[in-house]
Every structure is written in C-alpha cells, then in structure tokens.
C-alpha cells in the first residue's frame, strides 16, 4: 500500500496528464468519428484554460464554476466558428481550424490581462487527480452512449457518405456542428482542469504542436470506439515517462511508433487488441477521415 502511495506521488503529474490527454483525445474523437478533420481543439483548450484561470485568479470564482464558465466560453466561440468553417471539407477544414487556433494564440498575446508572452502564473492548484479521472469517466460514458445512439449513427452515416446521409434526411451540417461544439466543450473542460493542475500557463502551449498532438492520440489509438483515443493518450503520454532513461532517443522512438502504427495498424492500437472483433471494427479508422 505504501509502495503504491509512493508510486502515485512520484508519477502524479504524469498520471494527471494521462487523464487530461485522454479527455482531449476524446474531444477530437467526436469530429473524427463524424469524418471531419478539425484541429481547433488545442485553441478551445487554451480559451478555457485562460478563461477559467482568470476567473479563479482575478475574480475569485469557485473552482467548479470557473471550470464550467471556461468550457462554456469555448463552446460559445465554437458555435459561430463551426457554422462558418463547416462549409469546407478535408484539408481545407483542417487548415481553417488550424488558422483559427493561431489567431487565438495571437489574440492571447495581444490582450494584456492574459500576461501575454509571459503567460499566467500562480494559478491556484485546485485540480486533484480524482477530478481528472471522474471527468474522464463521465465524458467517456457520454461519448460511448452517444456513439450507439441515433446521433452516433447519424455521425457514422455522415462519415461513410455525406451525400447519402443528407439524402436520408439527416441534417448534415447540424450534426457536424453538434460534434464540433461538444468537442470544444470537452476540450475546454480539459483546458480548465489542466490550467489548475499546472500552476502556470503560456500561449504557446495551445498552438500547432498541441493541436497535432491531440490528433495523434486519437489516430494512433484508433477511432472506431471511445477506448481507442484513451488508449492512444495513455500510451503516448506514459511512453516518455517510461523512456526517461532513453531521454535522448525518446522522440526518435515516438516518431518511429507513429510511422509504424500508421503503416501497420492503420485502424489504431485499439483494434489490434481485439482480433476477433477487429474485422468488424475495421470499417472505421484514420482511413475514413478527410
């Protein structure tokens, strides 16, 4: 028992980030499952991180309320954004959301209250590990239920064939927008939690690199089901900690794993485990997006 406690103390940060990254991976899973490649979730994370941190830091809001306000702010911004960018598809959609992310990063640099380039420091460390994992549990449950609901089937239909889905009377734009806004809300929640886990935040944390990282978690894990993105986040976040002794070669291994997974397990890690069901699951994966 004591050993377990020691383990938790030593790896608390890594364990926390595993959970946070899993939530982020689920946030992008929603749009990927709908067949849309969007890269705006890092920005939504940043918006909520700054929003909630400013609320606890400067306005003295209680932690849960600040988290909620931050996530809602991200969702509120995602709505008009989604309504505009979902006129585009494929790489154009990806690049438009990426550009939005950069605009957010630059906007944070421009607004004095955010501390600009220095970022915000001294954020009260309110996040406990159980907050992270309780959130992950709830979000996983919601995503899993949505996936097997009529909404999830509509998302699948859109991913498989947008025109066919529309001809079946599915309001395609509205369902895409729903996945996008829900993704922003979840990414925002993760952003708020991460900001209060970390003491300090900086605008550069929410840029291109983060957007790509979130995408990679989901794709490497696999998007046929909700376990995939979580697995991807767990493996790719734990790996650097496990590989600590090989620090110098860490990126090389991580890069090699990315290439190997994409080349040899294009449906993601999650489908490798379950060989029997893999054949059935094989119809969804990185294959089907963009």
């Amino acid at each position: 028992m004591e050993e377990l406690q020691a383990f938790f103390d030593a790896y608390q940060t890594t364990i926390g980030f595993i959970g946070i990254n899993a939530i982020l991976a689920l946030s992008v899973w929603l749009t990927l499952y709908t067949g849309q490649l969007t890269l705006g979730n890092a920005a939504f994370m940043g918006i909520a991180a700054y929003g909630s941190a400013l609320l606890t830091l400067k306005a003295g809001f209680p932690f849960p309320l600040a988290l909620l306000c931050g996530a809602l702010l991200a969702a509120a911004i995602s709505l008009p954004l989604g309504a505009t960018v979902f006129r585009l598809r494929g790489v154009y959609l990806a690049i438009a959301t990426l550009a939005f992310g950069e605009v957010v990063r630059v906007a944070i640099l421009a607004i004095p209250i955010t501390g600009r380039g220095q970022g915000l420091v001294g954020i009260p460390p309110k996040t406990e590990l159980w907050h992270i994992f309780a959130s992950l549990l709830v979000i996983t449950y919601v995503c899993a239920r949505l996936r097997i609901s009529s909404v999830g089937r509509a998302w699948s239909a859109i991913r498989e064939d947008e025109v066919a889905a529309a001809s079946q009377g599915i309001p395609v734009r509205r369902y895409k927008l729903a996945a996008f806004v829900l993704g922003a809300l979840i990414a925002g929640w993760a952003g708020g939690i991460a900001a209060h886990f970390n003491f300090a935040i900086q605008p550069d944390e929410y840029g291109f690199a983060r957007a790509v990282q979130i995408l990679v978690f989901a794709i490497v894990g696999g998007i046929p089901n909700v376990i995939g993105p979580i697995m991807g986040a767990v493996v790719l976040t734990a790996l650097p900690a496990v590989l600590q002794p090989l620090q110098e070669y860490r990126d090389i291994l991580q890069g090699a794993i990315l290439v190997i997974v994409i080349v040899y397990a294009p449906r993601g890690l999650a489908t490798l485990l379950d060989v029997r069901r893999a054949a059935r699951l094989r119809h969804v994966g990185a294959q089907d997006v963009a």
Binding site: R250, D251, I257, L258, I262, V263, D288, A290
Partner: peptide, 19 residues
Amino acid sequence: APPLSAMISSIGVSLIVIR
C-alpha cells in the same frame, strides 16, 4: 490510404529527423 494517414506518418518522420 487517405491523405490524413500520410500526414500523421510525416509527423513521425519529422520528430525523428529533428531529434
């Protein structure tokens, strides 16, 4: 495979080259 797969695998290569 679709373009997205190639994009992800190019990220992997990029990490390796930079390191």
